Simulated scan of single mutants.
Amino acid sequence: MRAFADTMNGYFVDVGAADPVLANVVKNLSEHLGWTGVHIEPDPNFADRLKNAYPGDHVVQAVVGARAGRAEFFEVDDGWLSTMDPVRAAAYEDEGRTVNSRVVDVTTLDSVLHSVGARAPIDLLKIDVEGTEPDVLAGLSFETWKPRVVVVETTTTTPRPGAANCDDLLRAHGYTHTLFDGCNGFYVAPGEPREFVEALSVPANVFDRYAPVIWFLQLDEDQRPPVRLAPRRLT
């Protein structure tokens, strides 16, 4: 929100969108700045909720990978941690989580974007697919879609960057790594202005005057503070 505060009617692609509110990266962009885009989510319950919450957007229920085909998909608990990574799925099972597997159709991000008539450039591409983020990026034509900002989960089940590391691929396309927030890597396309890069180099903090939505929702309605868009300005 800090970087895009002056970008009205922008365009996003959210891969692994999950809940339309909790931990959702694009909700404020949509609600406050009029953004539209594509939500990609394999879980049918999340997909239905996204369709209800964003009726003007494209919601695609699909599993996305490096190439089209068939693959084993591991559904974990309530859908938040579902993955195509068998190592991660086994680790979740060892933790006592419920893991069910099924063979599913896999498509590429390019195919999804072409099928819905997505527009380029994409202002924000966010990817959170629990371990196979590099495969998602491998199925994207950067020359066609030109994402300005890529936010990608780079951790496994700990706060350390793990196997889902897209750094080399993104740097090969000229992207600058601006921030690791403990869970995600933030990358900015070549040619963006210095002020834009700086705005994505600092995590959300007290100067942004924000409250996590999970705290906000725990308050009784008459105790909730008014919500104001007041992103921090670095200049």
Rank of each mutant, 00 (worst) to 15 (best):
Q223Y: 10
T36N: 12
P212A: 11
L219M: 15
E153K: 14
T155Q: 02
V188G: 03
M1R: 08
P55H: 07
W80V: 11
T98N: 09
E195N: 14
G37C: 04
G69W: 09
R160V: 14
L169E: 06
T107H: 09
D57T: 13
E93M: 09
W35R: 08
H177P: 08
N205D: 15
N52M: 12
T154I: 14
T235I: 09
L200Y: 04
P86Q: 14
R119Y: 01
L22G: 00
F73A: 01
A23I: 10
D85F: 06
P134I: 09
V103H: 09
R88W: 12
R67E: 15
D14Q: 04
R160K: 11
T108W: 00
D105M: 02
L219W: 13
V103M: 12
R102W: 07
L50Y: 03
E130A: 06
R160I: 09
L169M: 12
N9F: 09
F142S: 01
F73V: 00
W35S: 10
T178I: 05
L113C: 06
F180S: 06
D6H: 11
E133C: 03
V197R: 10
L200I: 05
L234V: 07
V197I: 13
S30F: 01
P193F: 06
P203R: 11
P212N: 09
N165I: 00
F186V: 07
G96K: 06
D110I: 05
F186I: 05
G56W: 04
E133D: 14
G182I: 04
V149E: 00
A17D: 03
T36Q: 11
V202T: 12
V106P: 02
